[in-house]
Amino acid sequence: MNGGTPRGGDVRCDVLVAGGGPAGCAAALALVRAGADVVLVAPAATGRPPIGENLAPTAGPLLERLGVIGQLGLDGHAPCYGGRAAWGADGLAEVSSVFGPYGPGRHLDRARFDAALLEAAESAGALHRTGRIRTVERLPDHWRVTTGATGTVSARYVVDATGRPARLARRLGATPGRSDRLTAVAGHLAAPGGGTAEPELTSLVESTPWGWWYTAPLPDGGRVLMAVTDADLVAGTRLHDPVVWWARARATGHVRHRLAPWQGPPRQLSVAAAGASCTRPAAGPGWAAVGDAATATDPLAACGIVMALATGMEGARAILADHAGDGGALPAHARRITALHEEHLHARAVQYRREQRWDTPFWHRRHQGTG
């Protein structure tokens, strides 16, 4: 591949990547290391409080393949020694990663992790432009993309790494489809003053009649706490109200013990779609979707970043193969994304069927295969 050089406000490149999260950075890194000229367009950091996320141990080999594991400073994130769950029974079951082949995972400072990945992509040679995709037009041998005030980019290929909205894929005729209406109502509990004991470095999931709770420590001494239910059940459970949300958390059997250092809820909660979804098709002539823009997983699976890295690298591989003359590479990427989504739905159904204690709308839908 041979890109061009900036001319005024315009740039020519081999591949434009829309989105600067793990999927977009993984795609950009893989492409740049294969010799492609890459422009990565991503909005500026929002400065919003981190929601926290675990990095599964299986991310390690992917980061090694990208050649960035030494640059990311993973030792600066808190280790995650596994997870505990009250699921299908009142007691806690434990899954440890300490003795796994890849060692412990990490409780991420997600903003710092994403920034480090973006910096690695830039250091490798990707040209980073701050902004969003405004228009995209298909010309005979390339895409013409406008990115707001930052000018125009001409690219042979485009990669959609814009997350669940799949903004670019939608413009190209693809359809993101949700498999459920799962919603997360999350709060960031800032580190308590006065000093506290070292937190237990495991995540915790606890099911309830209306859904389930997730909590995990953050590297800064704070904690993420998230209630997960269906969108239409949020109002009835009043989980959007921080006071009610906090009271429900304090009434749990296990989560409440992780909240002992905190006296009250955060001032605001964030509400976000959290269900499984899949974009169909996830690729077409001259483009590919990766990460959540291709397929998003239920947070219960705890594999979002691993999936983002893997599909970002896979999308890059498909583009490189297409450029080399393999006309079936991009359709094969789309089929693999669909297969990954179907495999996830099957595994998710098995996990949700393990919880049989409640015949309530949330669980009835999952036992009947409608949620």
Rank of each mutant, 00 (worst) to 15 (best):
E137S: 14
G194P: 14
P165K: 11
A34D: 06
L330D: 02
G76P: 00
E355M: 07
A23Q: 06
R250L: 15
P79K: 13
V68R: 02
W213K: 02
A274L: 12
T5S: 13
H323K: 01
A42N: 09
E64F: 01
R280V: 15
E200F: 08
G148I: 10
A169L: 06
R112C: 01
V271R: 14
T183N: 05
V255W: 00
V38T: 09
S277A: 15
R365Y: 02
G195T: 13
R7E: 15
R170C: 11
G264T: 11
T162M: 04
R12K: 04
A78K: 01
H188P: 00
T202E: 01
G88F: 09
G253V: 03
H341I: 00
P57A: 07
P104H: 14
V306M: 06
P219V: 13
C80A: 14
D90C: 01
L66D: 05
Y81R: 09
T237I: 03
R181L: 11
W287R: 14
W143F: 13
L117Y: 06
A318R: 04
R258E: 05
H142C: 13
W212V: 02
A56L: 09
Y102H: 15
G83F: 01
D298V: 03
A339M: 02
D232A: 13
A56S: 14
P57Y: 07
G100L: 05
L239I: 08
D322M: 05
P192T: 04
I133S: 03
T202L: 10
A288T: 05
R112N: 06
A34R: 15
T147C: 15
A174H: 01
A321M: 12
V205E: 04
I305S: 05
